[in-house]
Design a protein around this nucleic acid. Structure first.
Lengths: 138, 138
DNA sequence: TTCTTGACTTAGACGACGTCCAAACCCCTC
DNA sequence: GAGGGGTTTGGACGTCGTCTAAGTCAAGAA
């Protein structure tokens, strides 16, 4: 994660305690937290950090390409720190758990030119849905 | 669309003016309306229909499999009446326009068993993002 | 046809999630 | 170590969606 902080400083980021804490929270396991969960975890380390700052920082990390925004259901967006390795998501339709998966094939190549309607297509997001083992047996 | 109404009646739906109007709105072109847009269009035909009823009816149509719920951004969900033909979506990152597309290949087959983590995977949603011609030239 | 009943609808309050703003703050440079 | 502009704060606000209690009505029974 010091890597991340280095990269950010190199891009002209002013390094504040708040930003460091948010980055550290995301650096943990490859879990996909909501903004509120990030805020809760950040508060444990820096009690007075505000919700607005967490949203601002997450938005900046997304636009810098360090974090990916995932909205799997219509609910809260989740933030995926695993932005530097191409991957897709497997979501439990019941409990909402998200796992990173690595399908074979390149979905971008599967969209022929005549199906692009003149769009400049840049990214593809593939979301697999189903029941996780725990929910399937419940 | 009378097809749809027939199917719904066959499933025990009580046929009310409100439900008929919502179904008629969705039956139009293959546009992807938000719930509020559906409500606005329904209001033109049945002035006193309430927001809650539109949400209820859309939810029922989704759980009956007659309509697909699409949440492309974190904003309002959109409702896709083209539920009986497999297709994916192409979204403009700038203006939010959605088009139905038909990529080749089967993304479900691209997820090997060892990448399923015991999930019972049932559906795949593929979303292509890019700029539509109008936004690209702006 | 009329009756009856329980499913359906309604309006508005409420809740979750996210954004915006002006004032205070503080990191960084010189 | 002083100044300036980027950053943070917290609370109001906005959007999207859900819930509830009371009234209404579609559809089967007689």
């Amino acid at each position: 994660m010091s890597d991340l902080l280095e990269r950010l400083r190199g891009r002209g980021w002013r390094l504040t305690a708040q930003r460091r804490v948010v980055a550290e929270v995301l650096d943990g396991d490859h879990v996909h937290y909501t903004a509120d969960e990030v805020h809760a975890l950040a508060t444990e380390r820096l009690p007075e950090i505000s919700r607005a700052t967490v949203y601002n920082t997450l938005g900046e990390l997304v636009s810098l390409g360090e974090v990916i925004e995932v909205s799997t259901d219509g609910r809260a967006k989740r933030y995926d720190p695993n932005a530097h390795h191409a991957h897709q998501h497997l979501v439990c339709a019941s409990c909402g758990t998200i796992r990173d998966v690595h399908p074979s094939g390149d979905p971008l190549a599967d969209l022929p030119a005549e199906e692009r309607f003149g769009f400049a297509v840049s990214t593809v997001q593939v979301t697999y849905r189903g029941l996780c083992p725990a929910c399937a047996s419940a």
